[in-house]
Design a protein around this nucleic acid. Structure first.
Length: 262
DNA sequence: AGTACCACCTGACGGC
DNA sequence: TGCCGTCAGGTGGTAC
């Protein structure tokens, strides 16, 4: 689930529900999600504080806290957030639960425990340490063009490389390449400037459109491939059968008619 | 600097 | 019904 549009939707959700409320209690039900911080330290740092601001970089969500730290959340493959009042609305795999003084809770739910949470005092330092690339929605054409001129390997894996640009994962890379009409295995270095430009503009279009649809595939335009990927497997531009192949170990879906190979 | 493979995890699904 | 392999929208480490 969580690529850039999903995480941006989570960010807005936290912003709309969880700011400026005092945290009464922190509950951590599984410490595997904690990175470089103990359960005790995280609870004590957050209890009694409030969240005041939200930021996102690629697939990373940062929530500012009145102790000046940022609570960092990464969602792995199965992470999500839920704001709720009654315990019966608590999601099944809630790993971190913040209870506010208004009686509501914000739960970080992560079935497969592949996500992680930590505290950081400075976002830029954190991003540098992780060597994350520029956010996919913030990167300029100049920088994108420069990076992808030099980049080797298939275009799909280049788009998914978080050190090159941050935020695009397996499904949105499929959508970007479908919209751009480029085969996922197309060698990055063999793209023309025109093709790079097309990928750049379709990347922005796909991510913006997905954010507008709150990252809900059922709200995506009829022209998107994502809702067809693992369902009817039919190309939305025609009636061709979509194909799947492995690219850098991930399953890529594409239309053999509309995405020509090199 | 690539790819290939394994590991981390849980759970859904299809085949037998 | 149960067991087993496979796969899933992520990332990090290792070997080549």
């Amino acid at each position: 689930m969580p690529e850039l549009p999903d995480v941006e939707t989570f960010r807005k959700y936290v912003h709309a529900t969880s700011l400026h409320k005092t945290i009464k209690q922190i509950k951590i039900t599984n410490t595997k999600i904690l990175k470089h911080i103990s359960k005790k330290k995280l609870s004590s740092q957050l209890t009694g504080k409030q969240f005041t601001e939200t930021k996102r970089h690629g697939k990373h969500l940062f929530i500012h806290c009145t102790n000046e730290d940022w609570l960092m959340m990464h969602f792995g493959m199965t992470g999500k957030l839920q704001y709720y009042k009654d315990k019966d609305e608590q999601p099944a795999h809630a790993r971190l639960i913040c209870t506010f003084d208004n009686g509501y809770n914000l739960a970080y739910d992560c079935q497969r425990l592949l996500g992680n949470i930590t505290l950081t005092s400075d976002i830029d330092t954190y991003l540098q340490r992780k060597e994350l690339g520029t956010d996919a929605l913030k990167i300029s054409w100049i920088e994108f063009n420069k990076r992808y001129q030099k980049k080797r390997g298939s275009i799909k894996s280049a788009l998914m490389d978080q050190n090159t640009i941050a935020g695009v994962g397996n499904i949105y890379s499929d959508e970007i390449l479908f919209q751009a009409g480029i085969h996922p295995k197309h060698p990055t270095q063999q793209l023309t400037e025109e093709q790079r430009k097309k990928i750049y503009s379709k990347m922005k279009y796909v991510l913006d459109t997905a954010i507008d649809a709150q990252a809900d595939p059922s709200q995506f335009p009829d022209t998107f491939i994502i809702p067809h990927r693992r369902t009817d497997r039919i190309c939305p531009k025609g009636s061709e059968q979509l194909q799947d192949i492995k690219v850098s170990g991930r399953t890529a879906y594409f239309c053999p008619k509309h995405q020509n190979k090199v």
